[in-house]
């Protein structure tokens, strides 16, 4: 496969803080590539370097075979970038914003309407409204439409679905899937692990370094302990009780269940069940489950940063 994005030994420092360190990876043409990691992990900085908005201190990066430092003009015409922070014109209407972005790239909304229809059609009833008056999620949808309207070859999306509702997120990812089928290369960062699963490959970043790079399934193999899902009638009380137990290695809420690991290597689900019942919990169920990306993410983060826990 041809490479659409190449990053080799990239580093960036802001004052005393090393925000990126020795990052090396490549993204194939037509790949849907995800970045996950906590705040300050360096994802936004990396995106800004690739979008030619920020110069790296070290290393080399190429987009579509062009060097980000020397050929930034050519790159800019061929990529779309949606920054994490709202970047539209609040005083222009929804429609004016979109037309503006199309015209900057010498195209029209009509020419590429098919591409943005799924997302933009939800905003069309409000197209005369000023962008500043849109709800948070509506602004995100407009920003995405603007990043797409010139049919870029590579799309950089920095947390595009933050503030976007669950139904629209689903549609949004269906749309990304279709764009990929048409051959677009997409790099996307997200705090939603149910989105990370939908990527071809994921990079896990922490404190400026890339700690893991793999397929979604590959990433979850980094989670090595047996994992239990535990439910009972009073979830919050259960969470506190398990946390207080000396056997608990980790306890996290996952919707209506808790995900639990024990520091006794061979403990069984039925033993845990009996112990919880003895503690007065009712409607208890305990089952062994396969770890997901969210479990793995949490485990990787805890491993690294146990120290700054407040």
């Amino acid at each position: 496969m041809k490479e659409a994005v190449l990053i080799a030994g990239v580093g960036k420092r802001f004052g005393e803080v090393q925000v990126l360190q020795e990052v090396t990876l490549s993204v194939g043409e037509g790949e849907l590539f995800g970045f996950i990691g906590a705040d300050g992990a360096g994802k936004t900085t990396l995106f800004r370097i690739l979008a030619t908005l920020l110069l790296p201190d070290e290393g080399r990066s190429e987009v579509l075979g062009l060097d980000v430092v020397r050929s930034y003009r050519d790159i800019r015409k061929r990529i779309g970038y949606m920054p994490g922070k709202f970047s539209l014109y609040p005083d222009l209407s929804v429609e004016e914003n979109l037309r503006f972005f199309a015209s900057v790239f010498g195209t029209t909304v009509e020419k590429n309407y098919e591409l943005i229809r799924d997302i933009y059609s939800q905003l069309e009833p409000f197209k005369t409204r000023r962008a500043g008056k849109l709800s948070g999620g509506m602004k995100q949808k407009l920003a995405l439409s603007c990043a797409l309207v010139h049919r870029p070859e590579v799309l950089f999306l920095d947390e595009p679905t933050t503030g976007v509702d669950a139904v629209s997120r689903k549609e949004f990812w269906q749309m990304l899937g279709r764009l990929r089928e048409q051959g677009m290369t997409i790099l996307v960062s997200t705090p939603y692990m149910d989105e990370a699963v939908l990527c071809d490959r994921i990079a896990f970043m922490q404190e400026g370094r890339m700690l893991a790079l793999d397929t979604p399934t590959g990433i979850t193999t980094l989670f090595r302990k047996p994992l239990f899902a535990i439910r009972a009638r009073e979830t919050w009380r259960l969470l506190c009780a398990l946390r207080a137990s000396s056997h608990a290695a980790s306890v996290y809420a996952f919707g209506s269940a808790l995900h639990y690991t024990d520091n006794r290597p061979a403990v069984r689900a039925d033993e845990l069940l009996v112990a919880l019942q003895a503690d007065g919990f009712t409607e208890v169920s305990v089952s062994v489950i396969q770890p997901g990306i969210e479990d793995t993410f949490i485990a990787l983060m805890e491993e690294k940063q146990g120290s700054d826990h407040v």
């Binding site: 947390e159 503030g163 969210e294 949490i298």
Partner: peptide
Amino acid sequence: TGGVDPVTRRR
């Protein structure tokens, strides 16, 4: 918790 990672939003 909009845009917040899985660990921090649980805290």
